[in-house]
Design a protein around this nucleic acid. Structure first.
Length: 1120
RNA sequence: ACUGGUGUAGCGCAAUUGGUUAGCGCACUUGCCUGAUACGUAAGAGGUUGGUGGUUCGAGUCCAUCCAUCGGUACCA
């Protein structure tokens, strides 16, 4: 017996199937039973288990799961190793918070050892919850043997990779501009900078400095305007203390600038200055006023209230690029490449919102500055210290170095002095005064702006160059860009746009993190930084330790745990005997996760039989997927490491899914209380409905406005319909004991409608397979749903109902069972990747009885392949006609208020072409029974009878006619019956438009039938149907009979009779029903399973029904 | 501010890649059908396809520009 159920309960199905999977080891078998030589490589991006899973994880994991399942069903072996991301700042911060400590306390109040222990414990806090959601949502991934980034093996592989990059000369130590708190003596992460209250409004001394141009070929066009007088470019800064470190000025290429002649307000000397035209109003206001007509600049006297100015020339920023200027505060020159300093460069960040439209560039104290400086080969203002190391002009305490003349030893900000020790005049003020007296300041003002502060010391931060280890990613960016083009991105825009552009403008990868819980940088350096060693394996570390022990007389051993602090204690030795100590930095956690393809297999130390990038074994991945937020995260680190270490892509196909928002398009957050709890959702609606909703509702890469009512709709419309189809099938198949033991009825022997649904089914298989293969799951689910709902349930089953419950267990009935069975089993396979539970439930329920399938689970079965022989597009077209014609007839009945139960004699169908008639003949019976009409009459010789309409076929005609199209369309619209008839007879015509002759064929027209005068007609596109609404007595009687059948069936139903119960019917004897009963007694009896139907004056225990408008009738129905 | 996505009926989505009445589902109104289905079906209401301008015989689709919205990056002289 096929299992039957009271109602659809998806969560219950989830539970049953989960148990089934576990008891049968279905997941393991879905891998182990596949050919090891036919692999589909998938990499799992590791989640961090110190946060709870959210609904967006269900989204991302559904995408991952479904393509893995699809390829499994394609016969491929899909290894899916789970993993955990265990390092990183978020973990450290949460531990700090729990322990109530700050970074400074680590190593003092708490040992690094204890601190790291705390991190190690915290990091897997929610592992059980993650495992639970993984299981419940049906995400198949190996949770038994996951890779864990804090494992020594994992760390060793990461070291191997770092060493490989080191050997390729891709690792270097360098400067990067980072937020730095001199008071605390530490760099701040951007995370820390985003703490509330970090940005505060402060009043600073701002200065507009005058940079004097050098006269040469590049600047001559300006000097020619001033007759050789000095020209200054003016630039604004809110940090005058950075002016001694100025090495460039940036202009906007497209910005309009002006050369203005005026006087300096402090020295009263005549000056020629360049500034953005848009900012003249701002900077040349107040004291300044345009030169009036008739006046001369020479009239200006020092002390005049107003200072006149006049524009000498307009120019574009681009014209100034390359101009040299004199160093503003020539205390010292950059230690290298000084010749390139002090010139005008172009910067795309320059705006005309503020200042002068010219930006002062100090590459040592601004991230943008450093970047643009590097791009333009401008040296930063670095000098060599006592140890010959390059350093900026401000030291780590925030004081000017000795090179900066009279400013040496001063803090750059007064806030850095201890209480009460700050001088009257800050460095900014001193510099401003100096500029004023030297005719180098155009304007000095107080300026209020928002500036970041250290959240620990409350003092302003500096942007300061700090020592860090870098990966020279920029040197490989062309290769990364090239190889990226070979990756199939879903959606493509993310790959070409977001990711591609990112690669084009790639910066070096700052690896260093001065934290405690992470993979230590395996680099040992001598005190003078001259000698370095990078360690690439634990074995190598052991050898180096032995060497060091011998050379230095130590007794060190390889630590059991590669984390800090143990690794820090190891001292190695250089070839010449110099001791080497480890660089204290950790590496960026993103390097951890980007190393997972190799480190999950402990490459190259183990598993070389299953993973070897050199041999392209297990590498690159065929498929990865994550949220779009990983574009610059995991997607990048995977790509970068693969390109740099192995000159290969790391993945061939990547799906980046969008955000999951709440139903109003708002970000989900705990604070707003609009976050959807994944466990609740899964428990209420089941995993399949949730998964199906997420995939079918919108493309995964679009943001999903998550609305549970959408899940409910999916449950009702798709799963409900499919469930009902199954129930229907089970109900009658049990009665008939259908278990597919008969030989398959050949397609040719099945009725038209069976061949139709099988044709559609095979078309569906084709399309769905292609969609899944192209990572277009949304299209696939929509097609499966459309097939199930529209075609299978609401056309095939509806029209075939009688075949299942009427008559004997005939060949036709068997064909019907087989057809429906095949459809359901096939759907279970097609839907299995997205809805793994329900699919397996239906598959198992069916297969338990029939044993037609060799696999115990749908997930061990092969994905269906389409049988091209079974696809009959003509048949599909035919059925389409049947549906349209039926729909037209029903609408006519409605218009005339003739209910469908009332039979009618005939419909008239104008024939569009001979083929059409054959087509309709094939589905004639379906139409007739669907609309309750006796016959179809074809109207062929239509001239005069049928009124036709004609329209040009724009697609074929438009291309040829071009601009004549309008004229042609007008001409055609005027065609009368005669022209259309001629056209049809001749199969085409000649048309002359503006003396040009065109040959038109029937293809170039759309001819429709529109009306049959004298008949009741309806049209839809080319189709027209006329309905004969004449009611003969015979038809009326049959109508009554059908009404009676309906009423009696309702009574049976109301009285809860079994479907098979036999009955005796008494009907009140009224004249209106007599003809119906005498003429159709057998028919009625047969329909309602009545042994007899009698007309009596007053039936006993009768039910009153309304047979027609105003006709009440008593009927009695009794079981016999 | 820069950069990408999106913008179609109250809501969620389509539209054969430029082809002429812009569709489907949910919700709504009124009928009908149904011994599998709170399913389906028929009629109705609901649209200036975000605005403007352009290219074209023809634009939801291409171009320009603006607006809204969601991301990403940058927060700066």
């Amino acid at each position: 017996m096929y299992k039957s159920y009271d109602s659809l309960n998806l969560p219950e199905i989830d539970r049953q199937i989960l148990e089934f999977w576990e008891s049968e080891n279905v997941f393991e078998r879905s891998i182990s039973e596949k050919d090891a030589n036919n692999t589909y490589v998938f990499y799992e991006g590791p989640p961090s288990a110190n946060g709870k899973p959210g609904i967006h994880h269900v989204m991302a994991r559904t995408v991952k799961d479904l393509f893995c399942r699809f390829h499994t069903m394609q016969g491929q072996r899909v290894q899916r190793k789970g993993g955990w991301d265990t390092h990183g700042l978020p973990i450290e911060l949460s531990v700090e918070k729990e322990l109530g400590i700050t970074k400074e306390d680590i190593g003092t109040k708490i040992s690094v050892d204890d601190y790291n222990k705390a991190c190690r414990e915290t990091v897997m806090r929610y592992k059980d919850m993650w495992d639970d959601i993984t299981r419940k949502m049906g995400y198949w991934v190996d949770l038994e043997n996951p890779y864990i980034t804090f494992d020594n093996n994992y760390i060793e592989s990461v070291w191997f990779l770092l060493k490989r990059l080191y050997d390729k000369d891709l690792l270097y130590k360098g400067y990067t501009i980072q937020p730095y708190s001199p008071a605390a003596g530490t760099g701040l992460s951007s995370h820390e900078l985003n703490q509330p209250g970090a940005y505060r409004d402060v009043t600073d001394t701002s200065a507009i400095a005058q940079f004097k141009l050098k006269k040469d070929a590049a600047s001559d066009f300006l000097f020619s305007v001033t007759n050789g007088a000095d020209v200054h470019i003016i630039a604004w800064t809110t940090t005058p203390w950075t002016l001694p470190s100025n090495t460039a000025l940036a202009v906007g290429n497209k910005i309009d600038y002006v050369l203005v002649k005026t006087f300096n307000q402090y020295t009263h000397e005549p000056i020629n200055i360049v500034l953005a035209k848009a900012l003249m109003g701002k900077q040349l206001s107040g004291k300044y006023k345009p030169l009036e007509e008739g006046q001369s600049l020479d009239d200006y006297q020092a002390g005049d209230k107003k200072i006149p100015f006049t524009v000498l020339k307009e120019l574009k920023g681009a014209e100034m690029v390359g101009i040299r200027y004199e160093q503003l505060l020539p205390y010292v020159l950059p230690y290298e490449n000084a010749a390139q300093a002090f010139q005008v460069i172009a910067g795309n960040f320059v705006t005309t919102e503020d200042g002068t439209g010219i930006v002062h560039i100090a590459p040592t104290f601004g991230a943008d500055d450093a970047q643009v400086g590097k791009e333009n080969n401008i040296p930063p203002m670095l000098v060599l210290d006592e140890n010959e190391n390059p350093v900026p002009l401000v030291d780590l305490q925030g004081k000017f170095r000795k090179e900066v003349g009279e400013l040496a030893g001063l803090y750059v900000k007064n806030e850095y002095y201890t209480e009460g020790n700050a001088p009257d005049k800050s460095a900014d003020v001193l510099i401003s005064i100096k500029l004023k007296t030297e005719n180098k300041a155009f304007k000095v003002e107080k300026y209020v702006h928002s500036y970041p502060h250290c959240w620990r010391t409350d003092k302003p931060i500096l942007y300061y160059p700090l020592d860090s280890w870098f990966i020279k990613a920029s040197s490989m960016k062309e290769r990364m860009f090239e190889l990226n083009k070979t990756i199939n991105w879903k959606p493509a825009a993310t790959g070409e746009g977001r990711f591609g552009k990112w690669l084009e403008n790639l910066n070096d990868w700052n690896l260093s993190r001065s934290r405690f819980w992470g993979i230590p940088l395996p680099i040992w350096v001598s005190e003078d930084k001259e000698q370095k060693k990078c360690i690439g394996s634990i074995e190598e570390l052991g050898k180096e330790i032995e060497k060091a022990n011998a050379a230095l007389g130590k007794n060190q051993t390889v630590p059991k745990d590669m984390h800090r602090p143990y690794i820090d204690e190891i001292v190695l030795v250089a070839e010449d005997g110099t001791p080497l100590t480890r660089e204290l930095d950790l590496i960026d956690v993103w390097f951890d996760s980007g190393s997972m393809p190799y480190a999950q297999w402990h490459y190259p130390f183990e598993n070389l039989d299953k993973f070897d990038p050199e041999k392209k074994m297990g590498f690159p991945a065929d498929f990865i997927a994550e949220g779009v937020d990983q574009t610059r995260g995991w997607f990048y680190t995977l790509h970068a490491i693969a390109v740099m270490a192995f000159d290969s892509i790391a993945y061939k196909n990547v799906v980046s899914n969008g955000l999951v928002q709440d139903k109003n398009g708002q970000k989900m957050s705990k604070r707003l209380g609009n976050a959807v709890e994944p466990f609740e959702t899964l428990a209420k609606y089941g995993a399949d409905a949730t998964r199906w909703y997420m995939i079918s509702n919108a493309q995964p890469w679009d943001n999903l406005k998550f609305d549970v009512s959408g899940i409910d709709e999916v449950r009702r419309k798709f799963f409900g319909t499919l469930y009902n189809t199954y129930s229907f099938f089970g109900l009658y198949a049990n009665v008939d004991k259908f278990n597919f033991s008969e030989a398959e009825v050949s397609l040719a022997d099945r009725p038209e409608i069976d061949r139709w649904i099988i044709s559609l089914l095979n078309s569906l298989i084709k399309e769905v397979t292609a969609d899944y293969a192209n990572y277009e799951a949304t299209a696939a689910t929509r097609k499966i749903q459309e097939f199930t709902d529209q075609h299978l349930s609401n056309w095939y089953v509806r029209l075939c109902r009688r075949r299942f419950w009427k008559g004997d267990y005939s060949a036709d009935k068997i064909a019907a069972y087989q057809t429906l069975y095949t459809c359901m089993v096939t759907i279970s396979k097609l839907m299995a990747p997205v809805a793994p539970f329900f699919a397996d439930w239906m598959y198992s329920n069916l297969n338990t009885i029939t044993k037609k399938e060799t696999s115990v689970s749908v997930h061990l079965a092969d994905f269906p392949t389409a049988d091209d022989q079974a696809i009959d597009k003509g048949l599909e077209q035919r059925m389409d006609y049947a549906q349209s014609i039926s729909s037209l007839v029903l609408s006519l009945r409605k218009k005339e208020s003739i209910r469908v139960r009332q039979p009618l004699q005939k419909i008239l169908l104008p024939v569009l072409n001979p083929d059409f008639q054959t087509q309709v003949e094939g589905v004639k019976d379906l139409i007739l029974s669907e609309v309750n009409v006796k016959e179809i009459e074809y109207v062929t010789d239509t001239e005069g009878i049928i009124k036709k309409g004609i329209k040009p076929n724009f697609k074929t005609l438009g291309r040829r006619m071009g601009k004549h199209m309008k004229t042609v369309a007008q001409a055609i619209s005027k065609f009368g019956d005669a022209e259309i008839a001629n056209l049809e007879r001749n199969g085409g015509m000649q048309m002359v438009i503006n003396d040009e002759e065109f040959t038109l064929t029937l293809e170039d027209f759309e001819i429709t039938t529109q009306d049959i005068p004298g008949w009741l007609v309806a049209s839809d596109g080319p189709l027209t149907v006329a309905l004969d609404v004449t009611l003969t007595d015979e038809l009326k009687a049959e109508g009554v009979a059908r009404e009676l059948v309906n009423r009696i069936q309702n009574i049976r139903k109301d009285q809860n009779f079994e479907i098979t119960d036999r009955i005796l019917v008494e009907i009140e004897n009224k004249t209106e029903v007599q003809a119906g009963i005498t003429g159709f007694k057998d028919y009625i009896a047969n329909e309602v399973l009545a042994d007899d139907i009698v007309l009596v004056a007053s039936p006993t225990d009768a039910v009153a029904v309304e047979l027609q408008e105003g006709l009440a009738l008593n009927i009695s129905v009794k079981r016999t």
